[in-house]
Nucleic acid binder design. Structure first.
Lengths: 243, 243
DNA sequence: GCAGATTTAATGTCAGACAATTAGATTTGC
DNA sequence: GCAAATCTAATTGTCTGACATTAAATCTGC
């Protein structure tokens, strides 16, 4: 593992890449302890602060964790589904907001991918998943619920649907698609009538899952997509008129 | 934007979080220049190395970039689809390898999500997407192709299929699911007969897309999933017997 | 033996310095 | 006057050396 001191690239970036490669290729395994900062500094022939910057880069990606104390040091992290999801949600959210992705495009992506879960979720969902969905439907019907809370409940409902597929890889991949929509949804004001229509479709979807009817689930999701797209179109059109 | 000097958490982690929040909430916008390291150090009442560690954390997530020189500094990055995809592929790959995700689970996730693209891709794919897929099919038929190259070509084929949906959000979300399978596929040895069957299914899928037949595309993908799962089962069973 | 004090090895933080880079201002040559 | 060369200032990149903090291991007294 060597770096190029004459390269124009930052030494800390090079060191981070070298260690990252070692982790990805399995030369460093989970829970293995890296050499101490002083030893790494000596190995790469750089100062300790430079090594530290490299380690912080890796820590930001959850590739390593550090512990202080006598037996401390930097250890290769087991990348958990939870940590990966958190990162993915942050990245997806930023990607959508910074690239001015249209509501239409994001919505299409989200519902397309969610429909992919319908067959699995209809087959495998547990009573717990159904109960979680019913609970969110109930919450969504509460009067006085803010638009933001309504959207948050919507996200929870859909994540329960996705988790119903009981495939952690799918749950991970879809976390970004579902959660990143929330800021976009938050731009919409929901009238009581809008909410009623959405809740009715949520009920339809929950019923279909309870009956383990994959086709009806997919249909419900498609209807919800159409409803959401129409709603957004109206809201944005009204806003454009107002100025 | 303040931090807690008495918190047990690293100061550099706190500073990174504070700036990250500011970016996510839009208080710092794309291409905006952050204060210089010296100014940040003064503001947060920490030393420059500590600020630098925080900035390197953000740089590792592609949230900022730094420039040297008179008008240099740290700038908020526009998170590009490309950078986001690269990160997602790294994370997905590590997630699968470190958590010993079964071939079955990963394969199910990948094909479920890919089937979600079938309707859109059948409708919108361009001649370019078809050409890319045909080219990969041709490559896959070449004698003397290593297993690794065969798998890489497989990934390219499927990414062309996904890109055919012409929805960048979908392409981004699925990049991880498709690419992260490659290391798992690389564990399989493909006989000539295996390859022939896979190529035939690829042709079937390409034909369906050319005919803009969504249902046939989905069917082709399902058949390919079954084929892949069977193949993997055989390989792993044979390996288990051998020891 | 065991509780508490001590040692030790590691990360976390700091201060100050110098090197390298780059844009812009200034000077110089004609 | 204008273009090229030079200087200047601002900023990041890196280094050195030190001290603070943490936590496990070891020693000590009883």
């Amino acid at each position: 593992m060597k770096i190029d001191h004459d390269s124009p690239a930052d030494l800390s970036a090079q060191i981070a890449s070298a260690i990252r490669e070692a982790i990805i290729e399995g030369r460093l395994i989970v829970d293995e302890r890296l050499p101490s900062e002083a030893e790494l500094a000596e190995h790469f022939e750089v100062s300790r602060p430079t090594v530290r910057e490299a380690l912080k880069r890796l820590a930001a990606q959850s590739l390593i964790r550090t512990q202080r104390g006598a037996t401390g040091g930097a250890f290769v992290n087991r990348l958990s589904y939870e940590a990966a999801q958190t990162q993915q949600i942050t990245t997806s959210t930023l990607l959508l907001s910074m690239n001015a992705v249209s509501f239409e495009t994001a919505c299409e992506a989200r519902f397309s991918l969610e429909r992919a879960c319908a067959p699995l979720s209809a087959q495998r969902r547990t009573a717990d998943h159904l109960a979680a969905m019913r609970a969110e439907i109930h919450r969504q019907g509460q009067p006085g619920l803010t638009d933001e809370a309504f959207c948050a409940s919507d996200v929870t409902f859909h994540r329960a649907l996705v988790d119903g597929a009981r495939n952690p890889v799918i749950s991970y991949q879809l976390a970004g698609a579902v959660e990143a929509m929330q800021p976009l949804m938050n731009m919409i004001t929901f009238t009581a009538r809008d909410r009623a229509r959405i809740i009715a479709l949520h009920e339809q979807i929950a019923d279909a899952l309870e009956a383990q009817d994959a086709e009806a689930t997919a249909k419900g999701l498609s209807a919800l997509e159409t409803e959401t797209q129409d709603l957004a179109r109206d809201v944005f059109a009204a806003r454009a008129v107002k100025g």
